[in-house]
């Protein structure tokens, strides 16, 4: 089992900010828009270096999505920045008609996703966005796991022609992926090989999955940990291959169980290789105020819950 260590914790939104600056330097067609949250989205370095390529739209997200669609006509690659709530639910019809159906090359970059937004509470804790976005034809959905991967993903999506939803978060979390790792859209990453159970996770839950893997290892359980950073298109080959080895799985995400990564994997397995599966996520309820750690504990989105689910699914495994 490979041991993952981290020397620092950083927020994934800062990875987005760093990636935006970098991709702005590499590609002069990259432009950015924000709806009054430049500080929260860490867009200020980009704005300072490319003021003429940044558009502050104010608190008008619907308009921002339309403007982004229009900017692609003329060859620009717009990155929109606001919270996940205002990046999806508030503007679903604008994204659906002007971006997804119209096949516009817009990168919807969504911060403060999930429970770990914390104290602001359920109004801002978006837990349905992966579902809404993955249902849209033409849309690619990406949920990177740490600072480095969010930075790499922010850079990589400029080279993918078509609408992308990139989801990241607010709190500081362990930085454990290599700084120089290239991000490949749609290619799940096997972080630890194992033979007893597969654990598929995305976003903040990937680190928790690794921690769960450590616990399970102590108990003599060999867990295969896979970072499914791209929810759509789903890396069906890697997932099926892992299941062929382990014959049972756990999924983990900071999102509703309805419409999330786990649901996509459940469908894949039901259609191809019916497999005992336990899903970790928020079960059809809204969040609430609290610290990120308290909330993840209360809603069962941590290493302990993942390990527990793994033990449970192992018992369901065909003998």
């Amino acid at each position: 089992m490979k041991e993952y260590i981290y020397t620092e914790k950083k927020d994934t939104r800062s990875g987005f900010g760093a990636g935006l600056l970098e991709v702005g330097r590499r590609n002069s067609n990259v432009v950015a828009l924000c709806a009054d949250l430049t500080g929260s989205l860490k867009m200020n370095d980009f704005i300072k270096e490319f003021p003429e390529r940044f558009f502050q739209v104010g608190i008008a997200e619907a308009n921002m999505m339309g403007i982004a669609a229009g900017l692609t006509i003329g060859g620009k690659i717009p990155y929109t920045g606001t919270f996940a709530n205002f990046s999806t639910g508030r503007v679903y019809d604008q994204i659906r008609q002007s971006i997804a159906y119209s096949e516009k090359n817009v990168k919807i970059c969504a911060s403060h996703a999930g429970l770990t937004l914390g104290e602001d509470g359920a109004t801002h804790q978006m837990l349905e966005d992966i579902g809404m976005m993955k249902m849209l034809p033409n849309m690619t959905v990406i949920v990177p796991c740490d600072y480095n991967q969010t930075k790499a993903a922010t850079i990589a999506i400029a080279d993918h022609h078509g609408p992308v939803y990139l989801r990241f978060g607010r709190p500081s979390v362990p930085v454990f992926t290599p700084a120089d790792e290239t991000f490949v859209i749609g290619k799940a990453m096997i972080l630890n090989e194992g033979s007893d159970v597969s654990i598929f996770a995305c976003g903040h839950l990937v680190w928790e999955a690794l921690e769960a893997g450590k616990e399970l290892f102590k108990e003599g359980i060999s867990a295969e940990i896979i970072n499914v950073h791209t929810i759509k298109p789903l890396d069906e080959e890697t997932i099926i291959k892992s299941i062929s080895k382990t014959s049972c799985a756990v999924t983990a995400e900071e999102h509703q169980l309805n419409g999330g990564l786990g649901e996509s994997i459940a469908r894949l397995l039901a259609e191809n290789q019916p497999t005992p599966l336990e899903l970790i996520g928020v079960n059809d309820r809204f969040g609430e105020s609290g610290t990120p750690a308290q909330l993840m504990e209360k809603y069962g989105l941590n290493a302990a819950s993942i390990a527990k689910a793994a033990r449970k699914v192992l018992k369901r495994k065909p003998k």
Partner: peptide, 27 residues
């Protein structure tokens, strides 16, 4: 046709973006 329309209220935003792109492209 450069963008889908039908669900109302969206076209002027798209036109805004296209106009900005023209300015950026010195068109």
């Amino acid at each position: 046709v450069r963008v889908a329309s039908g669900s109302l209220g969206q076209g002027l935003s798209v036109a805004n973006g296209a106009a900005l792109a023209k300015k950026l492209n010195n068109d």
